[in-house]
Write a protein that binds this DNA or RNA. Structure first.
Lengths: 189, 189
DNA sequence: ACAGAACTGACAGTGACTATCAGTTCCTGC
DNA sequence: GCAGGAACTGATAGTCACTGTCAGTTCTGT
């Protein structure tokens, strides 16, 4: 399954997202096209799959403290960035390990961008109830704030991408989401 | 062109979005499938097209005052809601005029939802520079805040939909986006 | 009346995605 | 060991959204 992702990524980098067919990916990964769809559902899913499981884990309920969600989000991003590089041979170099290679397609390929938006939307839908139950927000407000955080993160990630991915993502999240912190005046300063 | 939209909407209401093909829509609207694609680009576009031209107009630069964008957004929504009913015969009843009929698909049909998200994303991208130039936000912050507003509006609209569309949309926007107002403390209270 | 632009329909083709069926592997109870 | 079922995989056929192109038509401006 990781095999499919890596082979697909190789082909995408080589010839572009649109120019690669599922059939070719299947051949390169030595599986059937059926299996590709079983695993990822869509072509975009190969790139987007579980990218935001970062937000899926129930364990993150603690992390995304409703009293200060921005700080929680920052913690999650920092944890993600500092996580031990995936079980990839060190020699394969940064290109494989770094999020850049995949994230690049999030913002350069329109259909992938849409898939990411949909994923963030789903993550936000799951998070909103937590915000409503633990905070002092109405359901509507919780949904709005949840979207503000989730898509605010997306905006920060895009800035990171547009800057070439040199500085840590967390820097952009911290700076970009600073205005949103005013929403919780009790934790200001 | 409005003909295509209305005929398509009739078919969607009758048999469901997925069960209707572009071919059938073309036949019903007495045009060729080519024309449908020329006008709307995608099947979802028939429902989503210019739904957010509300935000496209440059005239809204004045409306979406960077000093108080939430209030500006509210004004825009109120203006949209109170606009004279489209040139539809009065007899055809509310169902055609009201936004409900189309918005319904925004939240019930996943692919349409994705298209709406993409549209909001584009609108936000256009608005962010205004926020950066007129306000005291960095580019990254402007982008984040722009997304917070745009997708916050989306969340409020969904709540309106989930409630059955009985109260005005502006009510949900006003209530839902209240927390975001704290971002501009100067205009608070 | 005429040249060119703008619009439309017809056609052929691509490829993502679905549904279904049959074969294989793996896990369980006896 | 071995029947039986669940889980996984591959193969096939089919649908349909979407693209590109070309020819015919209508609508300009001069």
């Amino acid at each position: 399954m990781r095999m499919i992702q890596e082979r697909a990524l190789d082909l995408f980098d080589e010839r572009g997202f649109d120019a690669v067919t599922i059939e070719e990916i299947a051949v390169a990964a030595e599986v059937s096209p059926s299996s590709v769809y079983r695993y990822f559902g869509t072509k975009e899913g190969i790139l987007v799959a579980d990218e935001f499981d970062l937000m899926n884990q129930e364990e993150l309920v603690d992390l995304l403290d409703p009293a200060d969600p921005v700080e929680g989000l920052l913690k999650a991003v920092r944890a993600y960035e500092s996580q031990p590089p995936a079980d990839v041979p060190q020699g394969e170099a940064e290109a494989v390990r770094s999020p850049w290679r995949r994230v690049h397609y999030f913002f350069s390929e329109p259909s992938v961008r849409m898939a990411v938006l949909a994923n963030i939307d789903r993550a936000s839908q799951r998070y909103a109830p937590l915000l409503a139950s633990h905070g002092d927000l109405s359901e509507t407000q919780a949904r709005v704030v949840s979207n503000a955080l989730a898509f605010g993160y997306f905006a920060a990630l895009e800035r990171w991408y547009l800057d070439g991915g040199v500085r840590p993502i967390a820097d952009y999240v911290e700076e970009g989401l600073a205005p949103l912190r005013r929403m919780w005046p009790s934790t200001d300063g």
